[in-house]
Computed example of a mutant assay.
Amino acid sequence: MKKSFFRFCSVAVLCVLLLSPAAATQGAKNGLVLWATVVLPTLLPFMICSNVIVALDAIHILTFPFRGFLRNFLKLSDAGSYILVSGLLCGYPMGARNCSDFLDGERITKAEARYLLSICNHPSPMFLLGYAATELPGAVPVWMLMAAVYLPVVLIAWLSRKLYGIQTVSPSLPYSREAQLTFDESLMDSCEVMVKIGGYIMLFSILVFYITGLPLHNPAGKAALLGFVEITTGIRAISGSIPSMAGGMWIAAATAFGGMSGIFQTKSVIKNAGLSIRHYVAWKAVHSLLSAAIFILLACCRQLPWAA
């Protein structure tokens, strides 16, 4: 049944592309420009450096300033702490990639990997400050967006630990030198992942181009749909169609969810069968709802007399 559905979808997509090749070409160009000018230069260097840090077994140096909080409060091992920090600093899908690689390399347990996948994959602060902040409606301060996106991580971590049975700090597993990559291997591995990410960005940019051209008479609804599909275009559409705090709330929710493009990018880097993309999507949906709720709460607090 599932295979038949995807066969039908693939044929339908091919027919649409053949009927409107100009739109498909323009959408693909938009996606490749986005990949080459934004995603590739900001993500590839971090991927290469991450591989080198892991190969040199130097993750404890990066995580040392946050070790107390990550171990005592979030119950993460040293390797798990590195996965969370790299995911927060580098953005989609770096956290999920490291989570899968560390599980494959037996540096973290399967329970900790499942726990980490729920909290380690987020938009980077550079994306929020460098792109999303410039698209925010004028009435929305940047700190509200940052708080709405990152504060839910604490609550999701608590829920995830309960679900996956993480009660104490996971043991630090020995590092196998046999799994160490040379610099050339690290470079090629990172480039392979970037090509996969670029392919998904191109495909979803084509879909975004088609959605943008739909004759819908509800600009706000179209903008929200674009945010659900791909966050970069979606944020710009939401900013232009939904004013004031409502626009900020939708931007926070879309950014936290990551879009369908982000989900497929994440799926492409999860190579270990012990990690479930369905669980990941569920956690991102919860994160998106919590981000919207926190944004509304912060907006209401700003209206109180003592906050004026």
Rank of each mutant, 00 (worst) to 15 (best):
Y150E: 13
P137K: 08
R97H: 11
N98Q: 11
N98P: 09
V149R: 01
L136F: 13
Y150F: 15
R107Y: 13
I119P: 00
V154F: 10
L116E: 00
E135I: 06
M146W: 09
F102L: 06
A96I: 00
Y92W: 13
V140E: 03
S118T: 07
P152K: 13
F127Y: 10
M144T: 14
G130M: 14
L116G: 01
A96N: 01
V142C: 06
A133P: 02
L128M: 14
D104I: 05
T134S: 14
S118P: 01
E106Y: 15
R97Y: 15
C99T: 00
C120Q: 03
M146T: 06
A111M: 06
I108Y: 08
G130C: 02
C90R: 06
A148R: 00
K110G: 04
R114T: 03
G138C: 12
I108L: 12
H122D: 07
V149C: 03
V140C: 05
S124K: 10
Y131M: 11
L116P: 01
V153E: 02
S124I: 11
L117A: 04
E112F: 02
V149F: 14
A147Y: 06
L128N: 00
L129N: 12
R107N: 05
R114D: 05
P137E: 07
V154E: 15
T134D: 15
G91V: 09
A113S: 05
N98V: 08
M144D: 11
M144C: 10
G130N: 12
C120K: 00
K110I: 08
I119D: 01
G95M: 03
E112T: 02
E135H: 15
N121H: 11
E106N: 15
T109A: 11
A147T: 02
C90Q: 04
F127K: 02
P141I: 09
M146Y: 15
P152T: 11
S118L: 02
D104M: 08
M144S: 04
C90L: 08
C120T: 12
N121Q: 15
S124W: 08
L145V: 04
A133F: 14
P137N: 11
V149D: 00
P125M: 06
A132F: 12
E106F: 12
L103K: 02
M94V: 12
E112W: 08
G130D: 12
W143N: 07
R97D: 09
Y131D: 13
M146V: 15
S118K: 08
L128T: 04
L145K: 00
G95I: 06
N121L: 15
C90P: 01
I119Q: 00
A148Q: 11
G91A: 01
L145R: 01
A113W: 05
V153L: 10
Y131L: 07
C90Y: 09
A148E: 15
P152Q: 12
T109M: 06
C120W: 00
L151H: 07
P152E: 13
R114P: 04
E112K: 01
P93F: 06
E135L: 09
P123I: 02
P141E: 04
V142F: 11
G91K: 03
P152A: 03
A111Y: 05
C120S: 06
R97A: 11
E106A: 08
P123C: 14
Y115L: 03
N121F: 03
E112H: 01
P123F: 10
